[in-house]
Amino acid sequence: MNIYQISEKIAQRPPFQMIEKVTELVPNESATGIKNVSVNEPYFMGHFPGTPIMPGVLICEACAQLCSLVIEKPAEDLEKNLYVLLKIDGFKFVKPVIPGDQLEISVNKTKGGGVIVGFDCVVKVNGNVHAKGSLTFTSIPKESLGK
């Protein structure tokens, strides 16, 4: 999937859209995607001046966006419900992510269907693990958000 196809499937948009390419997608099972890290991303001005490092929470967000492409959502569910991140578990940031890195993100569904869905995530740069952990999502009614 390219950036245009991804934009049709996820709710996030630039500058918060973190997945730029999907190289493999097995619906309801797994996916592999790419995030190119650019020095022009606004958070680098403050994190950290002179030594830019991608915030761990944004690495988790990139994983979450790729997971959202894996979750099979029935058409009637899309109108009424939204899958949101429920839990970040055991995430380890082994090496820093810096401008110029290309994140190779792999996510594998470990549990779920229904309202709770879990994934194991691995983030690599040049084949080396930079982060890994687990994410859990739940389905909530859109009306609960005051819409």
Rank of each mutant, 00 (worst) to 15 (best):
Lys80Glu: 15
Glu41Ile: 04
Gly50His: 12
Ile71Tyr: 10
Asp77Leu: 15
Glu61Met: 11
Ser139Tyr: 03
Ser134Pro: 09
Val122Gln: 00
Pro14Arg: 15
Leu145His: 11
Pro15Gly: 09
Asp120Ala: 10
Lys124Gly: 00
Ile53Tyr: 07
Lys124Arg: 02
Val39Asn: 06
Gly127Asp: 02
Ile71Asp: 06
Pro96Asn: 03
Val125Arg: 01
His47Tyr: 06
Thr110Asp: 02
Gly133Asp: 12
Lys95Thr: 07
Pro74Met: 05
Glu41Val: 03
Gly90Ser: 13
Val115Asn: 14
Ile98Asp: 02
Leu69Pro: 03
Val94His: 12
Pro141Cys: 09
Glu61Phe: 11
Thr32Met: 13
Lys109Phe: 05
Val94Ala: 14
Leu69Arg: 13
Glu8Asp: 14
Ser144Glu: 11
Gly112Met: 03
Gly33Thr: 01
Gly90Thr: 12
Val22Tyr: 09
Pro99Thr: 07
Gln102Trp: 03
Phe119Asn: 01
Val107Phe: 00
Glu24Trp: 06
Asn126Cys: 06
Thr136Asp: 05
Val22Glu: 12
Val37Met: 01
Gly113Met: 07
Phe137Gln: 04
Pro49Gly: 14
Lys111Glu: 07
Gly50Ile: 10
Leu78Ala: 15
Ile105Leu: 00
Met18Tyr: 09
Leu145Gln: 10
Leu78His: 11
Pro96Gly: 00
His130Met: 10
Lys111Pro: 02
Val22Ser: 11
Ile6Ala: 06
Gly127Asn: 02
Ile34Phe: 01
Gly50Asp: 12
Gly112Ser: 05
Tyr83Gly: 14
Glu104Met: 00
Ile34Lys: 01
Phe44Pro: 04
Cys60Gln: 09
Ser38Cys: 04
Asp101Ala: 00
Lys92Cys: 08
Gly118Tyr: 05
Lys80Val: 15
Gln17Phe: 05
Arg13Tyr: 12
Leu145Trp: 08
Met18Gln: 15
Pro55Trp: 07
Ser38Phe: 08
Val22His: 08
Gly133Cys: 11
Val84Asp: 11
Ala11Asn: 15
Ala131Gly: 03
Lys92Phe: 04
Ile10Pro: 09
Ile19His: 08
Gly127Gln: 04
Cys60Ala: 13
Glu8Ser: 15
Cys121Val: 04
Pro52Gly: 12
Gly50Val: 14
Pro96Glu: 01
Met45Asn: 14
Cys63Lys: 01
Ala131Val: 01
Val37Cys: 02
Phe44Trp: 10
Ile59Ala: 01
Leu85Arg: 05
Asn126Pro: 03
Tyr43Asn: 07
Lys147Gln: 15
Thr110Arg: 05
Pro27Asp: 13
Pro14Asp: 13
Asp101His: 00
Glu24Arg: 15
Thr110Ser: 06
Ser68His: 11
Ile10Met: 14
Asn126Phe: 03
Ala75Lys: 14
Val117Tyr: 01
Ala64Trp: 06
Val115Tyr: 13
Asn108Trp: 01
Gly118Cys: 07
Glu76Ala: 13
Gln102Gly: 04
Asn36Ser: 02
Lys73Tyr: 11
Ile88Asp: 07
Met45Pro: 03
Pro42Met: 09
Gln17Lys: 11
Ser68Asn: 15
Ile53Ala: 08
